[in-house]
Design a protein around this nucleic acid. Structure first.
Lengths: 168, 168
DNA sequence: CTCATTTCAGTGTTACTGACATAC
DNA sequence: CGTATGTCAGTATCACTGAAATGA
């Protein structure tokens, strides 16, 4: 009774199937679902980036942090507000430049960072399940090249304008 | 006077830099920006997918189209509404099953599909600029494997539940 | 005055959820 | 009855825009 109604198992249209932009979009969605699933409630994603940035860079201002991570400075406000409320970061006024806050990760923040890193690693493992180790490395390298190449592009717009960031 | 204030040119934190999920997210954003830029006003993205699907599969119902493309059936309603208003697709009631509409691409739709394909190709070229031809192929193959592998996963949730889509 | 930093309010897109009427 | 189709309304995340207050 299903002779005229085959299942919807067909591959996506060939035209799309080789479109990198389309594949990238879908892979990113899969990735986001897995990460969100692994992170549970705590919104994560950007949180992990911010905490990792603070852990690696040490104390610095919001603007510099946002620029390094490629996170919109306006969005960063809300993220840090939440992280501060949860005592994952500390914000103190910079006495040398009273426009700035100095953001620093706390011990609790480092703990959360570890958890998020583990969760992200688990999600990544699930995402990359069909690939071998060397293929995973290949993928990472290729994506790094792409992201690196478009980084300046990303900087120009948004909120992130800065004389420092652009070579004349 | 900038001796103590180095520019924000540093690479992202190493922890993130090798996180595929993070790289994938950023690459997808870059991709989306380039595609949107290349498509101009006409929202595109999903439009291209829908038109390409219709062109390849021929006339079929909304539910089947959505399932094959991995587009939420609720969202598909709005997309098709717009495409029908612009006479890119035709919707006729299926007389054998009066719940269904039969969706078909029009000549205008095929024209638009060509334009969108060209625009998408241009955007992709810009996105993949730093990669050689063989590297691009590598990337496509790897992403295809990922997307393919998570396709069933994608099907289970959402709005897309269907006995047909899941082998017992 | 110009510019940087931080903040807030609002937009647009994408994916997803839940509920509903209709028809099989 | 249970299930599938198409529809609508609403949510959440994300990137982004514009404007504003404060201070260098």
């Amino acid at each position: 009774m299903r002779a005229t109604e085959p299942p919807d198992e067909a591959s996506p249209p060939e035209k799309l199937w080789s479109l990198t932009t389309w594949l990238l979009g879908h892979a990113a969605v899969d990735s986001r679902r897995l990460v969100a699933q692994s992170f549970g409630n705590s919104t994560g994603r950007t949180d992990l980036a911010v905490l990792a940035g603070l852990a690696q860079y040490g104390p610095l201002s919001q603007a510099r942090l946002g620029r390094r991570l490629g996170i919109n400075l306006g969005d960063l406000v809300a993220i840090l507000k939440r992280l501060e409320a949860d005592e994952m970061v500390e914000r103190t006024l910079d006495r040398k430049d009273r426009r700035r806050y100095v953001i620093e990760i706390t011990e609790d923040g480092r703990g959360m960072l570890s958890e998020l890193e583990a969760a992200a690693a688990a999600a990544q493992d699930e995402l990359l399940e069909p690939l071998s180790q060397s293929e995973r490395q290949q993928l990472v390298t290729l994506l790094q090249r792409l992201v690196e190449h478009h980084r300046d592009y990303r900087r120009e717009g948004a909120h992130t304008k800065s004389k420092e960031a652009r070579g004349t």
